[in-house]
Nucleic acid binder design. Structure first.
Lengths: 215, 215
DNA sequence: ATCCGGTTTCAATCATCCTTGACTTTTTCA
DNA sequence: TGAAAAAGTCAAGGATGATTGAAACCGGAT
């Protein structure tokens, strides 16, 4: 049995202690967070109760409430977790060089995959609930805003040639966001169809058009 | 004392009782339904409870439960009500001759207004909840499907010249739906910006382009 | 017009279940 | 051993739907 020097534990959301217990504690925390996210996806925000989360995480409710004193604390942690995960996944997808050199297509496919991912669903559930819950909104808004900003900047890095024409770039940015998120919402309850693919292809050619315009 | 109904509320196609009581009953029903819709908009689906609906409708809970034995019955009625109202409003907006003869612009403006209306918000709340509630989904889907079909057909009537090119028409239809609904979702939590108007104008010109293409 | 039988509408209360979070006890392990 | 983690217990509050009883109302008969 290896003896590991134990460090002072802080229950700060981001701190990672190096002691054995601290590690276990952190692992339990992510376990809870991931269970909560699963619940959001499978049950929706309304039915995501502390009891169900605890059961899904394989913990007793009391144990869970030790890590997160209240339900809102779990949600808060989930928002941070989702934000980090989504951003990392998005960047990774955007960063890799496309095989066919087609950055626009890669960007669209990347964002479309992103929107179909359970993480987006969970985020979306929270966002809808936040519309009528001020406390939730206060938690969600910063993350939402940061994500959009990061996405915008990542896109700018990806398409440096667009920098010169802010107008067109922003238009393409907004258009893409609305189309794909609109499709994403539809995808929550419907299957992806051939028609959807047509819309994506159309979007792609419009973006390229915008990029080439009055060069 | 012969009393005269002092609530001459026009009741919709539902339950066309001719008697006085039947009329009052119908009026109470719509009162409850509208209260439920208000709650959906103001509180979201999760917090819309029978107690709150009753209070908002100015009725006792018992009285309300006489008209609608369970919560789901209220929601069911609300879905039908919303479906009828949305469809009627939409048709009315689409039917009128645009002052500048620009049907495309009228269509876009009409749909955009439609999406910003509280009725859409209420419908949306139910739709999101339905994602994880089979019973609700069974209620909502028929209405949702019917609405889309009706909208499609109304659009076809409005743009008869597009009939020849089903492909382009459908693409324009889908594109419009996704862009505007995507904007609508965003509008739930954000204000409408100048950038949004730009997207709408861009959409408009793309639609006209699609209509003119290879004529 | 007035009264009556039956029905519709409304109010109030109750039992039940669910959710939450505080509290207490047990277990684990450095 | 003692601190941290986990498990278990409990009460308060909320939501739902059922029950009961009162009031208003209609149609018809006197």
């Amino acid at each position: 049995m290896a003896t590991i020097p134990h460090e002072p534990l802080t229950h700060d959301a981001l701190s990672i202690g190096s002691g054995w217990q601290a590690q276990k504690s952190a692992s339990t925390r992510t376990q809870i967070i991931e269970a909560a996210i699963t619940c959001l996806v499978e049950l929706g925000y309304g039915r995501t109760t502390t009891t169900v989360i605890a059961k899904k995480a394989g913990l007793s409710r009391g144990a869970m409430l030790h890590h997160f004193p209240s339900k809102m604390d779990i949600i808060r942690a989930a928002v941070e977790y989702l934000h980090a995960k989504r951003l990392r996944a998005f960047r990774k997808a955007m960063a890799k060089e496309p095989t066919d050199g087609d950055h626009v297509r890669l960007g669209i496919e990347g964002y479309w995959s992103h929107v179909k991912h359970p993480w987006f669903v969970a985020f979306f559930e929270i966002a809808v609930a936040a519309r009528t819950d001020k406390e939730l909104a206060a938690i969600l808004f910063p993350a939402q805003e940061a994500f959009e900003r990061e996405w915008y900047e990542t896109s700018l890095e990806l398409f440096p040639e667009w920098k010169r024409k802010g107008e067109n770039f922003m238009l393409g940015f907004d258009l893409t966001r609305y189309v794909i998120e609109g499709m994403g919402i539809s995808f929550l309850t419907h299957k992806e169809t051939e028609r959807d693919k047509r819309v994506l292809r159309y979007l792609e050619s419009r973006l390229k058009e915008l990029a080439d315009e009055d060069r």
